[in-house]
């Protein structure tokens, strides 16, 4: 099953201002797409459009050669999106948070799976503490544990390195590389200099028009 997300002549207007126009993109298995641009250039908006959250755009998006709007449910079942906010409830423990995500992914899952996912992001010993007592970086790691827990081919990550320490960054880079080598693909924004030895495309936003460069 080859993975392909295509966008043709994508344009987005917000309150009378064009964020980008005539944007052509393609992401396949084994590729990373990095969206760049200054603050307010529409990076998050583009990620939200590519992850099917925003329907207010012009142009067309295809998922596995079918229009995204038509295969939306199917697309969502292949997508893992991490946004600005980590998506971790402060009142619940990391284990409970992950249990909810597993249920939303359609599998009951086991405690052992959740424990091992938490261990991989370096949260061993914190699994029963309310997430509100964890640091911002640790909360982000709880969110990143979902990458292990619910395997999805397409990852869309909005600033995934926020609040993560240096080892964490290296770990995440390794995980991204492994995911891409395993046939997955990643769309991400980050201000971090990435050190990932896999093919990477870049899209630069700003200047009212997206520029694609390989």
């Amino acid at each position: 099953m080859s993975l392909r997300l295509q966008a043709r002549k994508l344009a987005c207007e917000r309150d009378g201002r064009w964020l980008f126009r005539d944007l052509d993109l393609e992401i396949r298995s084994g590729e990373i797409l990095r969206v760049e641009g200054p603050n307010g250039s529409g990076k998050t908006t583009l990620l939200k459009i590519l992850s099917g959250q925003l329907a207010d755009y012009e142009g067309s998006i295809f998922w596995r050669d079918a229009p995204l709007r038509r295969v939306h449910r199917n697309f969502l079942a292949s997508l893992l999106y991490l946004g600005h906010a980590p998506g971790v409830k402060a009142a619940l423990t990391p284990l409970e948070n992950l249990a909810w995500y597993q249920a939303m992914a359609g599998t009951g899952g086991t405690e052992a799976q959740r424990m091992s996912a938490l261990e991989m992001v370096g949260l061993r010993g914190f699994e029963d503490l309310p997430a509100g007592q964890l640091s911002a970086g640790q909360q982000r790691r709880v969110a990143l544990a979902r990458l292990e827990l619910t395997p999805r081919p397409l990852w869309v990550l909005d600033e995934p390195f926020t609040a993560i320490d240096r080892e964490g960054v290296a770990d995440l880079e390794a995980r991204l590389a492994a995911h891409v080598r395993g046939g997955g693909s990643v769309v991400l924004t980050t201000h971090q200099a990435l050190d990932i030895p896999v093919p990477m495309c870049r899209v630069r936003l700003g200047e009212g028009k997206g520029n694609v460069a390989s």
């Binding site: 969502l76 998506g87 909810w100 359609g106």
Partner: peptide, 17 residues
Amino acid sequence: RDDFADGTLEQLLLAAQ
């Protein structure tokens, strides 16, 4: 409001359900 602030509402919208 809490779900909105911590991002779980965004994730709920992304669920296939």
